[in-house]
């Protein structure tokens, strides 16, 4: 088990991120895990004095998750990455690449997600 991991609702994420910043935590990264049941676990990792604190947010695939890049600018890259590779619907990212930070138009929509790829939906593939 991960130490210092707290399950929170997506509504609380902004509040906890703000609170972490006030308390002197730095943003480390976020991890998206596709649970295979139509939901994602998104873990936000913060660090203070080399001790990690982790917030776990469970979101449904179609749900929106508000970016924390307005609080921690350094979250922009990982939030764009999760948005592209998992199809996670993260909104209000400070610099939103619109799905083209890593992927081109010819790529799969969300290659890291556990999903059946319908061949007709793959652009550029006959």
């Amino acid at each position: 088990m991960i130490e210092n991991a707290f399950d929170i609702s997506k509504e609380l994420l902004q509040i906890e991120a703000q609170d972490s910043k006030i308390k002197g935590y730095r943003f480390v990264t976020a991890t998206c895990v596709d649970l295979g049941n139509g939901t994602f676990d998104v873990l936000y990792h913060f660090d203070k004095n080399l001790e990690l604190k982790n917030y776990r947010v469970n979101v449904k695939k179609e749900e929106e998750l508000t970016s924390i890049s307005n609080i921690y600018f350094s979250a922009i890259l990982v939030e764009n990455e999760m948005k592209e590779l998992f199809g996670l619907n993260i909104t209000n990212i400070a610099i939103d690449y619109g799905g083209h930070m890593l992927l081109s138009d010819d790529d799969l929509n969300s290659p890291m997600a556990k999903q059946q790829i319908v061949i007709e939906e793959r652009k550029g593939d006959k």
Partner: peptide
């Protein structure tokens, strides 16, 4: 494994470059 995720140091240092 179900998931392996790596956060590399350069990934963390790019925002500082932008600053």
């Amino acid at each position: 494994l179900d998931r392996l995720r790596v956060r590399t140091p350069t990934f963390a240092n790019i925002p500082t470059l932008l600053k």
